[in-house]
């Protein structure tokens, strides 16, 4: 596991300060979406090997949700962004 995460607000911190929620790629369906869609969102998740984006909560620091772009095979961290910035950047694309 990547042991040092550079938080955009707090700087380089050990992984013990964070809690991990899971993949950042799936988008939450609308509340009115069909049950199958919700089932897929909640239970059917990929378990990729390699580079992927993940939600990390900086619980012991700034208490912000971050999106960590990392490789779960080589433990390399490519980038850390605030989840809000990540969403606005995605919306802008």
């Amino acid at each position: 596991m990547a042991s040092l995460i550079t938080c955009p607000h707090c700087g380089t911190r050990p992984k013990e300060e964070f809690s991990i929620r899971g993949a950042a790629a799936p988008r939450r369906p609308s509340p009115a979406a069909r049950d199958e869609v919700w089932h897929r969102y909640v239970y059917v998740r990929d378990n990729p090997k390699g580079r992927y984006e993940e939600y990390w909560h900086h619980a012991a620091g700034c208490r912000r949700w971050l999106v960590v772009d990392r490789d779960n095979l080589t433990h390399e961290v490519f980038g850390v962004t605030d989840a809000t910035d990540h969403l606005t950047a995605e919306a802008g694309e």
């Binding site: 707090c10 700087g11 380089t12 911190r13 050990p14 300060e17 012991a60 620091g61 208490r63």
Partner: peptide
């Protein structure tokens, strides 16, 4: 687990950790 060296963590600086 934060670098508290005088040149890095300046006087008056503060953070949650």
């Amino acid at each position: 687990a934060v670098d508290l060296h005088p040149d890095v963590f300046a006087e008056g600086q503060s953070a949650n950790m």
